[in-house]
């Protein structure tokens, strides 16, 4: 594991609302906010349920499984930290057990950009990128 100062890519800058999400990732748990009143999942983390107006929610753990919704492949290093991984697939994944919720991720199992397809099943895995942060990533299911 690298220290934060050695990690060359951007790291998350959590807010009071989002800090628990990253804390759960560090424990390798995939959890999303779900409204306690109307049971609607929401992501990215925020205070209020847009469906029913309730501030009450639970961090509900879901299975780390998903499906490719769409993706884009970077052929240029728009940030120098990604220069050695080009072409880099940046993938949007529907989370199977959290209806309406998606995550963004990169593959970390060597899957090449030209092997990505809409509808492909993926496993959501956790990459301890620094001492401080663990990022959700994906691998072929």
């Amino acid at each position: 594991m690298t220290t934060t100062s050695e990690y060359k890519k951007p790291i998350p800058r959590p807010t009071g609302e989002s800090q628990p999400f990253w804390d759960f990732c560090k424990k390798h748990e995939l959890r999303f906010q779900r409204c306690s009143k109307c049971n609607t999942f929401r992501h990215y983390p925020r205070p209020l349920c847009g469906e029913c107006g309730s501030f009450d929610f639970d961090w509900v753990q879901v299975a780390p499984k998903g499906t490719v919704h769409s993706w884009v492949t970077a052929h240029r290093a728009f940030h120098p930290g990604f220069a050695e991984e080009l072409p880099l697939a940046i993938v949007i994944v529907d989370v199977d057990e959290a209806p309406g919720i998606r995550i963004m991720a990169n593959y970390n199992d060597g899957t090449k950009a030209d092997e990505v397809a809409v509808g492909a099943p993926v496993k959501i895995v956790f990459d301890d990128v620094t001492e401080e942060f663990t990022l959700p990533k994906i691998a072929r299911a």
Binding site: K9, P10, P12, H69, W71, F78, H79, I90, V118, L135
Partner: peptide, 26 residues
């Protein structure tokens, strides 16, 4: 752009052509 910075920039989604690429692909 704050939310995108926290959850998407970290995977390399930096430039507008990367933001809109998944829309076009879809």
């Amino acid at each position: 752009m704050r939310t995108m910075g926290e959850f998407e920039y970290i995977y390399g989604l930096v430039a507008p052509m990367l933001w809109y690429g998944p829309m076009a692909r879809r």
